[in-house]
């Protein structure tokens, strides 16, 4: 039991980060059927902002990272995705690859591709006692932050006017517009929320790894994409649960696999993914909204 608490906190902190990332991807997908691969850079770029501002006070560096993510996300939507709106999802997917590559190369150009040290949450490096064992404060903070954000996002979607419009647009975009829901506003809201989640992931994940490099966001986003497929594409609950499960399973594999097999933990992870999809090809929570439009 005493071993289990740190392992679970560890697993939940990884699961939480994947859940937030999968939600960031899912929010945009559900509204405009765009599988936004550039979400990786929505995570990487604010992490570089943390690196650049590492001499500044924590609050300022984190605020700047959030701002950078939001501006980047809105600019990407305006410049790359809005002109393609209504075009088939495959084209938009390729466009998001392009944006992703472009931003990644830009980072290599600006910072080269070596690891840069970051430690945005240095004050959380200690441990606290929990259930009689000592738990890493940063991981505990990660778990709590993820939980708070999940609850906040749920309340936002369920009880605010913007949230209602977003859920409507996710179900039937054309019908929602016929009722007066403004397409630009709903999509911008989705991109801002997605960027906020990405910025939080950037702060927490870079605090855990201690460095940033141009493919920093990509490693987590690829897994999060798998998680959204497991959860059921186009379903936010599914994305969150899928992300959480994938993170937890990956961590448990890392902990409990025999040491010789640990380097292959992702092979085991994807084996589980394949098995899940064999039995639930639509994912664990199939979306209702993926049907024909008017």
């Amino acid at each position: 039991m005493s071993n289990l608490v740190p392992v679970l906190i560890d697993a939940f902190s990884v699961g939480g980060l994947y859940a937030l990332t999968a939600l960031g991807i899912g929010l945009i997908f559900s509204v405009m059927r765009l599988a936004n691969f550039a979400h990786a850079e929505f995570v990487t770029v604010p992490a570089y902002a943390l690196f650049v501002l590492s001499a500044q006070p924590t609050v300022m560096a984190i605020s700047a990272a959030v701002l950078v993510a939001v501006v980047l996300s809105l600019a990407t939507e305006r410049a790359a995705f809005r002109p393609l709106r209504g075009i088939d999802p495959a084209t938009m997917l390729i466009a998001s690859f392009t944006v992703s590559m472009f931003l990644q190369r830009l980072l290599v150009f600006a910072f080269d591709s070596r690891l840069k040290p970051v430690d945005p949450l240095a004050f959380l490096s200690g441990s606290v006692p929990l259930f009689g064992v000592s738990v890493n404060l940063l991981k505990l903070t990660t778990v709590i932050t993820c939980l708070v954000l999940l609850v906040a996002l749920t309340l936002f979607l369920k009880y605010t006017r913007f949230g209602l419009e977003m859920r409507a647009a996710a179900e039937d975009f054309t019908m929602s517009r016929l009722l007066g829901v403004r397409a630009n506003r709903v999509i911008a809201t989705a991109f801002v929320l997605s960027a906020l989640l990405a910025a939080v992931v950037a702060v927490l994940f870079s605090a855990q790894t201690g460095f940033v490099q141009p493919r920093f966001g990509l490693q987590i986003v690829i897994i999060a994409f798998v998680a959204t497929v497991i959860g059921g594409l186009g379903n936010l609950l599914g994305a969150a649960v899928g992300g959480f499960l994938v993170g937890v399973v990956a961590t448990l594999l890392q902990t409990y696999l025999p040491p010789d097999l640990r380097p292959f933990r992702e092979a085991f992870l994807f084996l589980i993914v394949i098995v899940v999809l064999l039995f639930r090809p639509q994912g664990l929570f199939p979306a209702r909204g993926l049907k024909e439009r008017i």
Binding site: L164, E165, R167, A168, E171, D172, M175, S176, L179, V181, R288, G289
Partner: peptide
């Protein structure tokens, strides 16, 4: 809007 409640559908109107 099938996943939204009856009330939410009316409110969206």
């Amino acid at each position: 809007l099938p996943g939204l409640t009856v009330l939410e559908n009316l409110r969206l109107g």
